[in-house]
Design a protein around this nucleic acid. Sequence first.
RNA 1: GCCCGGGUGGCGGAAUUGGUAGACGCGCAGGACUUAAAAUCCUGUUUCAGCAAUGAAGUGUGGGUUCGAUUCCCGCCCCGGGCACCA
Length: 802
Amino acid sequence: MAQYNASEVESKWQKKWEESGLHSVDLKNSKKEKFYNLVMFPYPSGDKLHVGHWYNYAPADSYGRYMRMKGYNVLEPLGFDSFGLPAENYAIKTGVHPHQSITQNVNQMITQLKRIGTIYDWDKTIVTSTPEYYKWTQWLFLQLYKKGLAFKKFAPVNWCPSCKTVLANEQVQDGTCDRCKSEVTKRDLAQWMFKLSAYAEKLLDFEGLDWPEKTITMQKNWIGKSTGSEITFKAEGIEGSEENIIVYTTRIDTLFGCTYMVLAPEHPLVPIFTTTEQKKNVKQYIEKAKKITDIERSSEVREKTGVFTGSYAINPVNGEKVPIWIADYVLVYYGTGAVMAVPTHDERDYAFAKKYDLPLRIVIADKKQHGEKDGAYCEDGVLINSGTFDGMSSEDARLKITEFLAEKKAATFRTNYRLRDWLLSRQRYWGAPIPIVNCKKCGEVPVLEKDLPVELPNISDFTPLDDGKSPLSKCEEFKNCKCPKCGGPAERETDTMDTFVCSSWYYLRYPNNKLADKPFDKAMMKKWLPVDMYIGGPEHACMHLIYARFINMVMHDLGFVDFKEPFKKLVHQGMITKDGAKMSKSKGNVVSPDEFVEKYGSDVFRMYLMFMGPFQDGGDWNDKGITGISRFVERFWNLVNGKSAEKDSEAVKKALHKLIKKVGEDIETLHFNTAVAAMMEFVNLAMKEGVCEESKKILVKLIAPMAPHLAEECFEGFGEKGSVIDAPWPKYDEKMTVDNVVRLGVQVNGKVRGDIEIEKTTDQKTAIEMAKANPNVAKYLENVTVVKEIYVPGKIIGFVVK
RNA sequence: GCCCGGGUGGCGGAAUUGGUAGACGCGCAGGACUUAAAAUCCUGUUUCAGCAAUGAAGUGUGGGUUCGAUUCCCGCCCCGGGCACCA
């Protein structure tokens, strides 16, 4: 018997698969039930694949292979998310233009990906930076624009005053520019947004989704629904104008305790309320606030800072005059960007009031007689010092005070969401151009659908510009155009789109990747979507996965698709770290799979990744145990190709039925580690006891999803025709998987004192007697009183003694 | 800081509608084969005490519920992911 030569066998089968088109899926005519098995697509950064890619793709592929053996027509595509910063950074570093490098890098990645031995159907691939794809990303933008879901608004960006350029968060390190180290500030730019907030309520409905509970919780928290009231405070501006400040609160029951009010530094009314004397302080404070991140600003431990505007507002419930302050702990995105401050019943307000010596007034009583010095009491209670509302519960008061003020048009009930609109403008070159034209006469005009795509010009200098504009703005041929409406001279929008827009709809395109006249075909959508299984990292729980759901819902509401949710089942793989840290080039801890694949083969490497631990957990990379898998593959090969037994022993027979059940269930729940362990256990047993050829064939099928090349080679060795992937998944007999005789532990006062072998169906009386007969158990039952006898069939026998 | 996970032998991990903790693998120790080594095979391997039978302790930590807790509840510590321009 020849030794197993992994690299020879693997390249042989990879070639065969490709030549026979084994993995190309017939999208239209197959009679089998469809299964759309999807992994989140990678971005081609110019780096080679690292073990993290394999960790994600190999098990996901094993799942797809399993589904195919179960009889499904499996679509398993892969594409490339090729717009965005990684490609731009690579281009800046190497001097190779992204137009070129993307093609190179994609081809290189495909070559590397093929070595995994996945069943990707490369005929259905997409590359988001190609005009054939981004034409439809632009089309998508236009659909949202038509519906009023795309709009322009001023919003802050990270700004390096020294480079005079917009920075991505990634380019900001500890508040400084990662190129020149100058302090980063913020700057307001007019930018395109999608009205994500309009879908907040719809996005909260997870009905029918087979998603991890934690992901749903994270999305719910991210959307952050709260119910409360909006209250209007009247105030006098510096010009003597009467202005309304609207605040949002979930605690209107504490309104009588409001002793001051706070605006976010970016609040548009700030200049109106800032008195001449306070101008200097306020200006300084706003400048400082621009340098602090939102995470720091919302931190509850950071010392609160703020500044008085010099103006006052009137509390509508009692006519009291309260000072208007500015503080960075109030965020302009959330609520109305203004809060009524109740220091006695809000932690942050308390800290702030203490620091600036603002008055306190307790308006909610609790049982413990909470005092002013005890900090804020944030729970509900009974109202005091609240005029006619005294004695009311917080809950009632929230209703009554809002209703009372509503009559005076000073308050309304309001549901609020933390979810912000989606800012999609990027002042960068390497992205899909936003299909909008600015005409002096007609204003903002969308590009006509027939004129799509708005092609990204091949300009040579794509480094960011020093005026905060996209590099496209100096490309005259691109910028100057005709107005689609009046035909007069006009200028194109030069911002490009966030790559999350590209990735928010790619799953709709795979089955339609060759369609030239529309983004997707209705019949095809009906047949293939939604995605049955979506696998990707948990870091996408909130952003990508909310954006994709949003876009899909919009497509649904516009009648393009008839399903509301794009991903029926979702699973996150864990992250592979190296020495406890996320693998990244900058940390220099990227591990390449190549040498391991070279040495042990793809099957061993992918099984090792699966065996390392639970797929959902990830883990810290080390290669310590890989020899174990290598030995196992060798043993498996020897077993299959060695002498077969005439027939299986009873023990082997039962073990095989159990194994079929276990491996199938484990793959279905993505517990590959225990599936591999079970295979090992069986092989160990079969080595000892011998196994017949029919059973060996079953074994080969069972390992096929996890070690496809090995399985093909063995399958061929049996003289079978065709691929093992088209062999049906083995069936088992449930009766053969249950043991009638079990070993039961016997406990005395919760401590195990022995075990007995017993029929599962034994009645309580017999079982207890058998347990008492165990000499070691008997020892512990001497000279004591048994107060309770416990028998849980198949689980435990216990005695409680005194 | 906020939100979401996680913490089990020397190591990766297994076992949860509460029922014999440590499957499987790595490593290590001893043995077989070999002139020798590698490879392979066999035996042992949570810690402590004991020749053993067995006993005690033990799933980050401190409490609680229970005949019985890795599993459920409360407090604390540590690690990871996300926090809206990396994707």
